[in-house]
Amino acid sequence: MSFSLDGVGLTHANGYTALADISLRADRGERIALIGPSGAGKTSLLSVIGTALAPTAGQGTVLDSALAGQAPRGQDLKRLRARIGTIHQAPPIPGRQRVVTAVLAGRLGQWPAWKSLASLLYPMDIPGARAALERVELADKLFCRCDQLSGGQLQRVGIARVLYQQPDLLLADEPVSALDPALAQATIRLLTADAEARGATLIASLHAVDLALGNFRRIVGVKAGRIAFDLPSERVTDALLHALYASEGEELPVQAHEPAYVTRQRAANDAATRAACC
């Protein structure tokens, strides 16, 4: 069992109910896509699973630790968290940090303190960081500063950090929102392949329905803080999807197909940043 939630609810201090009566479980190695309109509670759900937010109702376990009641604290909590990797929609990386340090930061929960401190003076695992960056095709940016990267490149640095962390449970919150369609597809494949190879559990929230259906076997629809459906991808019908996204109009959100000149423009931008850096 990787995680299980049983009637979990989350009500914020201001009275807003983000999640209500969520029951969801995943076995080790499962790969799940989370879809639903914006504001449905996808990020909250991932935050609860990732121990960032404690549920205000219900029970749950993550990697055999309780989420509520007897939840681990102190060192136990750190050990648990070191096994959970999160890819955030907005990469939580300080702009003035170097790419190599940002990637190595993925293992701060696993490294002894002396190593983490020494790594600020001299990166302690350059080959590791380079390998992780190679997988997102950014190895040439190893010693750049993060504020020299474009939004899409920065998002890939955030992904490289989690690849380097090698967590048992991989949570991804709109991991490809800043990437163009081709790169988004490749990155989702990279994440699923990484999870499969290491037997890790992957749960990714995605705004683009086609990306979810094409790459994940299990689809969980979330609407208004509740689970709308939890089905194998082949049984997710158009009717279900239209009901899920009723609030967002007729069209289902899919990957944007940008005109070619936009992609060309982006390539030129990338080249410009590359020229400015290193």
Binding site: K78, H88, P94
Partner: peptide, 24 residues
Amino acid sequence: APANALRHSGAGRPLALLYGLVPL
């Protein structure tokens, strides 16, 4: 956000500050 993200992946407070906040 950077420091919180590091804490959520198991880093202690001093390291989260050094890696997440001090660069900024």
